[in-house]
Design a protein around this nucleic acid. Structure first.
Lengths: 161, 161
DNA sequence: TATGGATAGTTGAAAATGTCAACGATTTAT
DNA sequence: ATAAATCGTTGACATTTTCAACTATCCATA
């Protein structure tokens, strides 16, 4: 990230409007970095016919946590109906399977197939490269710190490890 | 932020899926915190008939930097046509005015009116409260650090001050 | 144990956003 | 002077979001 990847400025010292007070606004900073990152992420994932959304569903399906669609929706901040569409597509491609919940037969757990896991390995590699590009301007330590702060803002101190 | 504001979990220790590897993914963390923040922001701004988008346009218009619509589009990562709609609405409400650019008469600079500035003062207060809520789980120092890291990722080291 | 109220997934419609190509007016380069 | 590029604008189209139903299932309790 930083320059050229971004739209608009190429002067080496950023956009004229960086001076505006909105550059201090958390929501704006999150939106902007997320927007820039999404472009890179989706570009990297396109090779595997995935987008950020389907990629994240596939990760959860492959996590071993056997999440239900509802849990996915909550966790990804998506409407349950969007999960339906995403899982439909992944299932059609043979990357995940639905199974009725063990205790609750209303719920359906989504699990990655071997094929899904394999694709995820490759896609994950590409996604990591894209993330590295976004974090280009930060030292490794700073990147880790940024992610730790984001996690803490979301979930509190979180697991010590 | 942290618990209750978020959808899904209310156990006090976050969502079951936090354990999944996607919780280490920058794009996901940005998307999730941004999504949660947007809800709070838009809720806070609704009182003033503003949304995140129109609010940010109003801030830029009030910055004294006399941005053109194109500059706003680049900076806000929006399509120029979206700026048209946003400025149209703010102008109709008497909060900003368009003026032809001084050197370039194709471009139109957008400037906040006194009324717009006044509304922005009040809305900004509400927005700051919403941001504080999002950053609830972080110490003041950590919040500053988080924002500094986001800025650095976007624009590099940035202005020393 | 039966009845009522909640919840999971699904469907489909409506609203909001995002994307993109065209156009006139203007600027810039040649 | 001409040609190419840029700015704002419009309108079409695609994608995404949001929401209200509906069925099947679970849970509480009378």
């Amino acid at each position: 990230m930083t320059i050229e990847t971004q739209g608009g400025q190429r002067t080496g010292q950023g956009h004229k409007l960086v001076a505006a007070s909105i550059s201090q606004d958390l929501g704006f900073l999150l939106a902007k970095l997320h927007a820039a990152g999404s472009v890179l992420n989706n570009r990297a994932l396109a090779e595997f016919d995935l987008k950020e959304r389907s990629y994240s569903v596939l990760i959860l399906a492959n996590s071993g946590l056997e999440p239900t669609q509802r849990e996915m929706a909550d966790f990804l901040s998506l409407d349950p109906s969007q999960i339906v569409a995403l899982v439909d597509e992944l299932e059609k491609r043979g990357l995940v399977v639905r199974a009725p919940g063990k205790q609750d037969r209303r719920a359906k757990t989504v699990t990655a197939t071997a094929k899904g896991g394999k694709l995820l390995d490759e896609a994950g590699e590409a996604a990591r490269r894209a993330e590295a590009e976004v974090l280009d301007g930060l030292a490794a330590e700073e990147s880790a710190q940024l992610k730790a702060l984001l996690r803490k803002a979301l979930w509190g101190a979180g697991p010590p490890e």
